[in-house]
Design a protein around this nucleic acid. Structure first.
Ligand code: SF4
Ligand code: SF4
Lengths: 142, 142
DNA sequence: TACAATTTAGAGTAAAATAGTCTTAATTAG
DNA sequence: CTAATTAAGACTATTTTACTCTAAATTGTA
C-alpha cells in the first residue's frame, strides 16, 4: 500500500480539527474516531512539527490548524504523517541489491520515475480544501 | 511502497525475455540479473499463470512471451507479480477497525477512490512496449 | 527407455515495515 | 499547586515482504 494508517488517521483528524473552534485534544479525537490514543498522539505531533497543526500544551490544550485548509497540500500532510514521501518503489534502499548495481540506470527506471512524478504532482496540487469539496480533483495524466 | 521487488523482478525479466528468441530459464535469468533463483521462479510462474509468459517444461525449457509487448499492460504484469492490484490504501482489510464502521463512507474515501482510479488508469493504459520506448512516457516538463 | 534439465506447487523461514504501547518529562490554565 | 495536556523516545506486537527448500511433474534427448 502506498499509504499507511498514519495518513488515514491524520486526514480523519484534520477533518475534525478544521471544523472546530476549540483546540482538539489527542484523547478526545481518538475517542471520536475510535482509534488508539497513543498512536494518534504521535501522528499529531508530526503534523505540528511540520507546521500543519499548532499545538497548545497544558490544560485545555490540544491542536488547531496552523494554516488555512487551502494552504495545505495533501502531499505535505502525507509526508508529515508517514515521515517520508510515499514511494512507488524506492530503489535507494536497495543500494546493495540493485541488479544493475547502479541505481536509476536500469530499463525500468524511466517508468518508475515518471510514475512517481505523477503521484507527487497529483498530491502537491491537491489541498485539504479540495479533498473535502470533491468537485475539483485534478487530473492525473496529461 | 506501492510496488515490491516482485514487480521489479518481473519487469526486469520481461525486458530480457522479450529480446530473446530461445526460452529463458529461471536460473539463467536469476544469474543474469543477480537475483535469487527460487524467488524469481515463483514470480515467473505467476506471470505464466496470467498468460503473460508461456512456460516450457523439461530440458531446454524456460519462458517466452505469450503475447506481443504492445498487448501487455503494465497493470496486468504488476497484478500477476504482486498477486493483487497495487492499492493506495486498502480499507477492505480494515473491516474490523474502520473508524467509520462503514468502509468507503468517510470523508476521505472520495479522495482515496479518485487517487486509486488515477493510478489504475495510468497503469492500464501503459504497455510493456511503452515503458521501454520511453518516448511514450508522458514528459516531466508537463 | 532412462535421465537430466526444467517448471510447478506448496510449506516453511528470516528480515523488515507497520502499528501500535508505555513511561517519563515538559508545559500551562485555572 | 495541580490537573490536563503535549513531547519525546524506547519498547513490543503484528503483518508483510522477501525470500528458501523440497518434492513432484514434465519433456527433450541420448
Ligand atoms: S534495477 Fe532498476 S529498479 Fe531495481 S533497484 Fe536497480 S535501479 Fe532500482
Ligand atoms: S475511515 Fe475511511 S479510510 Fe479509514 S477504513 Fe474507514 S472507509 Fe477506509
Amino acid at each position: 500500500m502506498l499509504l499507511t494508517r498514519a495518513s488515514e488517521y491524520a486526514l480523519l483528524s484534520l477533518d475534525i480539527i478544521r471544523n472546530s473552534e476549540k483546540p482538539q485534544g489527542a484523547e478526545q479525537l481518538a475517542r471520536e474516531l475510535s482509534i488508539p490514543k497513543s498512536f494518534l498522539a504521535k501522528i499529531l505531533q508530526g503534523l505540528a512539527k511540520s507546521n500543519i497543526l499548532e499545538s497548545k500544551k497544558g490544560a485545555h490544550g490540544g491542536f488547531i490548524m496552523a494554516k488555512k485548509v487551502h494552504e495545505i497540500s495533501i502531499a505535505e500532510i502525507i509526508v508529515a504523517a508517514e515521515g517520508k514521501t510515499p514511494a512507488v518503489f524506492d530503489c535507494s534502499q536497495y543500494t546493495d541489491s540493485c541488479p544493475n548495481s547502479a541505481i536509476g540506470n536500469c530499463n525500468i527506471s524511466p517508468f518508475l520515475a515518471t510514475f512517481q512524478n505523477k503521484i507527487d504532482t497529483f498530491l502537491q496540487e491537491l489541498t485539504l480544501e479540495d479533498i473535502f469539496n470533491n468537485e475539483h480533483l485534478p487530473s492525473f495524466s496529461h
